[in-house]
Design a protein around this nucleic acid. Structure first.
Lengths: 192, 192
DNA sequence: TGGCTCATGTAAGCCGTTACATGATTTT
DNA sequence: AAAATCATGTAACGGCTTACATGAGCCA
């Protein structure tokens, strides 16, 4: 009778598994996790320092990761590895078929939803701004070259997903810009 | 020199404009806003009671909306309308071309990113769960029939966007399920 | 008369970001 | 010598969700 997920991983949030997963694929320090997130999961799951470092401490306290100091000269540095319990917790999450969080906050689309208050030119300008935004995201994803490893296919597949999704959005924007500019009446969705 | 957006609308967040926009299209009480959000913007901008009611008070205090009591018998009910300042603030936001918030939290994709730790069957099962999730969202969007009004084309266009986007995701899932099950080597994205 | 819908609101708490603080090492 | 990068962390705050509290009106 827990309030969140199963009793086995009560105090873990999705971001905990992000950290666990990163460590599993060989990303070993807080700093490295931060940077790897920036070039890989950022577009569908972000994480900041304010989360990562406290999270590492929690995971260590829970016995899911083990860290040891490995300084570079005088510069402090703590390297983490999964424990058996950590490996298990990660796998349990990965195969847990209960509800998947999916959330979006899309300010551009919200404006678009209210765009009846705009002139045609203003609406087109808005969609152009949305397109620009997703083109930047697309460029970011394209740039991120996950290091090639035989045992890391899913990084590439995820990149493909990102390219496809934001590519679709960019195409939708182009199409919509044209339709709005040419005054195509948006009737496909009107009731019969 | 403000920290957020322009000085004109310092203390307004995106959710404030959601409320403003809803009132503008004739959604007049907190309760109605709550319900309309559930069947329209929910999939790209959610809002709960805990936001809407305090927000209405803030907007009224700021002079952007005006509310008057309009009870149904003994049952309390407060109806809101935009003031000129509110109309202006909404329009200013709609045409403000500065940065658009776009955030996603996609737990399914995060699991997929780490799916090298899974067996093929488990990975396929995960993608199936993702597909199921987006099929539900799709059904929700399909069901939501925005009331037809000559001056509300963009509600339909937004619905079209939602159907297209989640439709794309569902197709991606189907394709990926097949490729994984048939052992298609994911090499399109591998470095040269 | 019991349950659903209409209707408004608050309190607690979670999750996360931003900004800052500190300092060593490497690169230019 | 300065600037960028490596590296770890904290404090304050903001936005949002969940859950609860309250009660009237409607319908089966």
């Amino acid at each position: 009778m827990s309030t969140r997920r199963s009793d086995l991983h009560q105090e873990l949030r999705v971001s905990s598994y992000l950290v666990l997963g990163m460590i599993r694929i060989g990303v070993r320090t807080g700093y490295e996790i931060r940077r790897r997130v920036e070039v890989s999961t950022r577009f569908f799951w972000a994480a900041s320092n304010g989360q990562i470092y406290p999270e590492l401490r929690r995971l260590e306290a829970a016995g899911l990761v083990r860290g040891h100091e490995d300084p570079t000269g005088e510069r402090q540095r703590k390297v983490f590895a999964l424990t058996a319990a950590g490996e298990e917790a990660l796998h349990a999450w990965l195969t847990d078929s209960s509800a998947l969080t999916f959330e979006q906050r899309d300010e551009g689309l919200l404006k678009f939803f209210f765009a009846d208050a705009l002139s045609t030119e203003e609406a087109v300008e808005l969609v152009r701004a949305m397109r620009h935004h997703h083109e930047l995201i697309l460029a970011g994803i394209q740039q991120a070259k996950p290091p090639y490893r035989e045992d890391r296919h899913f990084g590439y597949l995820t990149k493909g997903y990102g390219l496809g999704l934001h590519g679709w959005i960019v195409e939708w924007c182009k199409k919509t810009e044209h339709e709005l500019a040419n005054g195509v009446a948006p009737r496909e969705l009107a009731p019969a």
